[in-house]
Amino acid sequence: MKKTSNRQTWYYAAVIVISYAVVTILLKGNLLNRQYTSLLVPIAVNIMLAVSLNLVTGFLGELTLGHAGFMSIGAYTGALISLNLGKTEVLPAPAAFALALLCGGLMAALFGFLIGVPVLRLRGDYLAIVTLAFGEIIKSVINSMEITNGARGLSKIPLYSNYTNYTVVFIIMVLTVLAITNLMNSRDGRAIMSIRDNDIAAESIGIKISHFKVKAFVFSAFFAGVAGVLYAHNVGLLKPGTFDYNKSIEILVIVVLGGMGSIRGSVIAAVILTVLPELLRGTDNLRMLLYAIVLIAMMIFNNSKIKEGLMMNRTFRKLGKKEA
């Protein structure tokens, strides 16, 4: 067993190095036009959002519809810090950005905790709806606050994390994915998955359900917050309307398409679903239709006899094993 895990480490290291090299070559060689260059950071942000949502929805097994809310808290916190400290040159830019990332993540995590604790008493459908409600509450509160500049939003946020700083973005994204992958391969990760598979049995072997549910919520919110900070410093302006229910659904679509509980799937799906709409440019309405069909088709397929038949098939089972 030791051997396979070693090989896997090398495999992942190779994937990381190669993807970094590819991005560098594409950028330095001016092989990408403006349109595709502008996609690099959104890809990383979506990967982080999808992987962090997967932690709660795929691994803990609770559907949350307020992920965009955590992202917006991170984005606004980070943007306010760099507007007040970085842009005014109270702090040097790298320090201001680092502080923005940290505080954005922590603030989102704090809200994850504040929301996670009461929401714990609910499960399934109710939990989904309450997280949706929280997402909308966050949106309306940001919309009516002065410090966030209400509906007009924040603008002229320093572009610390646009494509010219792609190395920083890349590193943060890789660290996020690694942190969550590692977490899921640890005792806490097993505890979280055991709650998904059977909460009553998990309790019977001494797993404190509430403790791990809150933990999963907090970690997931933290990384969504960091992703929000990257988002804010890439586009330079924030509006509360960006972080609505549709954004949460968009992230959910990535997780569902990639496969719930599969980190690798989330990463691949995030890349595809960020690039694809650009390829189908001008057909924004078609994109929504596509998302809808993907959601329905994936769910029906996953629970159909066709999949069961494929699972019985030997070659497919082998493929499935590799995935796990």
């Binding site: 959910l252 929504m288 809808a292 959601l295 329905i296």
Partner: peptide, 18 residues
């Protein structure tokens, strides 16, 4: 139930986009 809920969300999205 999670699968059913996601399908329903997909259906809502579908009607809106049509």
């Amino acid at each position: 139930p999670l699968a059913v809920l996601i399908t329903a969300i997909g259906m809502s999205y579908f009607l809106q986009s049509v």
